[in-house]
Write a protein that binds this DNA or RNA. Structure first.
Length: 194
DNA sequence: GCAATGATTTACT
DNA sequence: GTAAATCATTGCC
């Protein structure tokens, strides 16, 4: 059961980041379907410096985030890693949720093949999970209600199981680097860091 | 047109 | 624990 597109229009990006925990992220790439629970997210808003579209800075790259919610924003970082974001809010209000870690459900062998290794390091990081799911740069801007990538309802996560803390890898964002906008499921083995 | 840089991962000391 | 890899995007010339 796919999440309704209206869910992504919510104007509180941190609420969406929390709610996405436990949901099922599915991909169908080249006829191979894989799915995984979302176990770690980060919220990015136009109002803080960690966001590429901070202060409504619109460039060719960030224009994806200015569109209405419910689409994928895939950004290549450090020349190697694809980072997968869910664009939220209405058109003209750039906000997004970064998916940092997932827990594999189906297609584990395919993920291992794509990653070229086996074991726990399969999806425990934003660059790894895109590789495992077969998400590539050419999926940038596609709808999350499409037949290539979509999000379904998943397992229910208790409020007390959700941990909020500071985000990772954005020290340059100064005071906004301390915002507790990183969310993960307490005790899950697939989160990127403890 | 060109140099600087990063929402990371991996390997090495 | 620290450092290198590596390239699209960005901003300035």
């Amino acid at each position: 059961m796919r999440i309704d597109q209206n869910f992504y229009f919510e104007n509180d990006v941190t609420y969406i980041a929390k709610t996405l925990l436990g949901k099922t992220l599915c991909t169908n790439i080249n006829g191979v379907q894989t799915s995984a629970y979302i176990v770690e997210t980060e919220a990015y808003s136009v109002k803080e410096k960690g966001c590429h579209a901070y202060n409504y800075k619109k460039t060719n790259r960030t224009s994806i985030m200015f569109q209405k919610g419910g689409i994928a924003y895939i950004y290549l970082c450090y020349g190697i890693h694809n980072l997968f974001n869910v664009v939220t809010n209405i058109e003209g209000e750039p906000e997004a949720v970064l998916i940092r870690a997932i827990e594999p459900i189906n297609g584990v062998e395919t993920m291992e093949q794509r990653r070229g290794l086996k074991g726990k390091a399969l999806t425990s990081g934003p660059g790894k999970l895109t590789s495992a799911l077969g998400i590539k740069h050419n999926h940038n801007g596609i709808s999350l209600l499409s037949d290539n990538i979509w999000i379904e309802e998943g397992k229910k996560i208790d409020e007390i199981e959700i941990v909020s803390t500071t985000r990772i890898g954005i020290d340059y964002a100064e005071e906004d680097a301390f915002l507790p906008w990183r969310y993960y499921i307490r005790g899950n083995k697939y989160i990127s860091k403890l």
